[in-house]
Each structure stands twice: as C-alpha cells, then as structure tokens.
Amino acid sequence: MKKILIIEDDEILRENTRELLELSNFNVITAINGKIGVQKALDHQPDLILCDILMPVWDGYKVLEILRAREETKLIPFLFLTAKTDMADIRFGMNLGADDYITKPFKENELVQAIQSRLEKFDLLLNPAKGKFKDSRAGRISTIEELKAHMRLKGEVLHFRRKGIIYREEDHATNVYLLEKGIIKCCKMDSDGKELITALYKKGEFFGFYSFRETLPYGETTTALEGGKAYFIPRQHFVGIFNENPDLTLEFANLFTDALTHMREHLLETAYGSVHKKTVHTLLQFAEKMLTEKSDTIKVARNDLASVAGISTESLIRSLAVLKREHLIEIDGRSIKFLNFQKLQNLI
C-alpha cells in the first residue's frame, strides 16, 4: 500500500482528499501546514507528497525547497495541489523540482490517475528493469532509437504553440526533451540585447541536456518557431538510463560530437563569412531542419534567419533579394521556396 502525505491547510479539502485516497487503497498521512508537513515527510518517508502552495507558517515553495535539499526526501515525487494557475507560478515551482501541478477544483479520477501515473514513473526510475523495450534483454536500452521509444512511452507530453517558451536561460535544467513535432530554436541575448540563435532542433532530436554530473542552469532560452509537441523526462531519470546502459553512452556521445562539429562550423562562418555566405549557410540550416520530402518551402521570420546568421535583418533582406534575382529562391511573405539546392550549396 503506497503512502501519500497531504499538506493542506483547508480542513474540508484535506479530509475529503484523504478519504478519496483511502478509498483508492492508499495509506494517507495529513499535515495542516508546511512546517508540520516537512516534519511528517522526514518521519514517515511517504511515497508521494501532495502539497498546497498558499499555507500559513511555511508555504508550498518552502516545503519543496527544504525537502529537495534533504538527502532522504529529495527524490520523493512532489505534486502541488493548488488553485494558482499562472504560468510564472507553475514555472517557478517546476524549477524548484516539483513533478506536477493538480489544479483545484479537480475531479476525483483525475487526482487518482495523476498520483498513480507519477508513482509508476518513479518506480521505473528506481527499477529500470521493469520497463518494456524492444531489446530482448529486459530493461536494456542499447540504442538511441530505443531511448526515443522509452521517452515516448514513459515521458510527459508537452504541447506548445508558435513563439511559446519551453524554458528560459538560467532556469534549473530539471528535464530533458525529445522533440516530436515542430521546430525549436535556442537563443542567447548579448549585452546589447541582440538575440543570437545557438541551435535549431527538429523532430527526433534531444534538447535541454547539459551535464551527467550535476543539475546546471539551462544555457539558452528555448522557443518554438512553430507549434508542436515534445516528450520530456526528469534529468535524473535520463542520467539513470545511461548508468544502467553503458552501451548507449557511446552512441549518445557521438550525437554530441556531431552537434559540436556543426556548431564549430557555424561559429567560423559567423565570424569570417561574408554576409551573402552567412545568408546562404543559414538558409541551408533551416532547410535541413524544416523541409520534408513533400515540401520545398520553409516558413520562418526574417529576424530568426538574421539571428542565426549573426547579421542585421536589413542585411539579410538585401541578401535574400540577390538570391531571388538569381532564381535560387522564391519569397512570399514568411515563405521561402528553394529552387536550386545544388547552386546554393556551391556558394558556401
């Protein structure tokens, strides 16, 4: 029987939730404020914690911060039970290490399903051999494709709109993402407030991972160039997979090596290439990420192209006009149609 700790100052809600979970065959402990909740978490080591945010004595953020700092409680799944739905509040809680938010008022089956899902994923993290993968060896993930299959099966789903922010620079890098649909850009701002795009990601690529050893801040702000979907798992889970599957580490390292090679080439082009070559190089980068077998056209804002190229938007527009006059591309608003890839590639 799994043990659940409910930290909630509203007596009616606390007792109703306790009764609901007991009827669902959970062993339930309750606390009337954050300070008492921390002590009960330390004393009873629950399997999962449900915690309100706005409470007397210690609020939910402080409870989470304290428990994540303690060795004996830092891995316990932690779900906020709250009426606060502002995205800034949610992001703040997730950056502290919360696993999920359940918004009040909630349906009984939604609460139980959220708890069961989180407990199952935590159990998989602690016992990787329980997972079911294509590899005949139970629990083994030996290839990148098996890792992707695992993330699609066990990860959380994130839907995002065009211009939606996935995470911001300096947020704690608590999750690793697999892009399933759409295009993602990573960017940094220089001291003058100018945006520089550092990476582009397409379907099937990982992003948001920075270190095997420690949880570092995200190095860039990541924004959607078009609407789409991604799967994500906690960084600790991601690292645990590599600890259990050393064969996978080499294949993943090769991905990083390829990415670094492309980045080095891009930096050299940005530093020493002509405006015209930078424009062509950037167009081919976007083409690689965005074109499909059925399409020869990309849709991208001029300022995004300029940010990747490392030139002004005005210079980029002039260079695009030259390529158009040479019948290498066609332009219609945000749409750019490629007419002759071979000639474009010969220009760089």
Rank of each mutant, 00 (worst) to 15 (best):
G139K: 03
G139T: 07
G139S: 14
R140E: 13
R140Q: 12
I141L: 10
I141M: 08
S142Q: 08
T143S: 15
T143H: 06
T143K: 08
I144K: 12
E145I: 03
L147P: 12
A149Q: 14
A149D: 12
H150D: 03
M151V: 09
R152L: 13
L153W: 00
L153R: 04
K154P: 02
G155T: 10
E156C: 03
E156Q: 14
V157E: 07
V157G: 00
V157C: 03
L158K: 13
L158R: 15
H159N: 15
F160W: 04
F160T: 00
R161S: 14
R162C: 03
R162M: 12
K163R: 10
K163I: 00
K163G: 05
I165F: 00
I166Y: 02
I166C: 06
R168K: 13
E169P: 04
E170N: 04
E170D: 15
D171Y: 01
D171K: 04
D171Q: 09
H172D: 09
T174V: 07
V176E: 01
V176W: 06
Y177L: 11
Y177H: 11
Y177K: 05
L178R: 11
L178G: 05
L178W: 05
L178S: 09
L178K: 13
L179N: 01
E180V: 00
K181Y: 04
K181V: 14
G182L: 06
G182R: 02
I183W: 07
I184V: 10
K185F: 06
K185P: 05
K185D: 02
C186I: 04
C187S: 15
C187M: 10
K188A: 10
K188H: 03
D190C: 10
S191K: 15
S191Q: 11
D192E: 10
D192K: 15
D192P: 03
G193L: 09
E195H: 06
E195C: 04
E195M: 11
L196C: 09
L196K: 14
T198Y: 07
A199P: 00
A199H: 15
L200C: 14
L200N: 03
K202S: 15
K202H: 11
K202Q: 08
K203H: 05
K203R: 13
K203C: 05
K203P: 03
G204W: 07
G204N: 02
G204S: 04
E205R: 05
E205C: 12
F206E: 05
F207V: 12
F209Q: 02
F209M: 12
F209E: 15
Y210F: 10
Y210G: 06
S211Y: 00
F212R: 15
E214F: 01
E214I: 10
E214A: 12
T215E: 15
T215P: 08
P217L: 06
P217R: 05
P217F: 01
P217A: 11
Y218N: 11
G219Y: 02
G219V: 04
E220I: 07
E220R: 01
E220T: 09
T221E: 05
T222D: 11
T222Y: 01
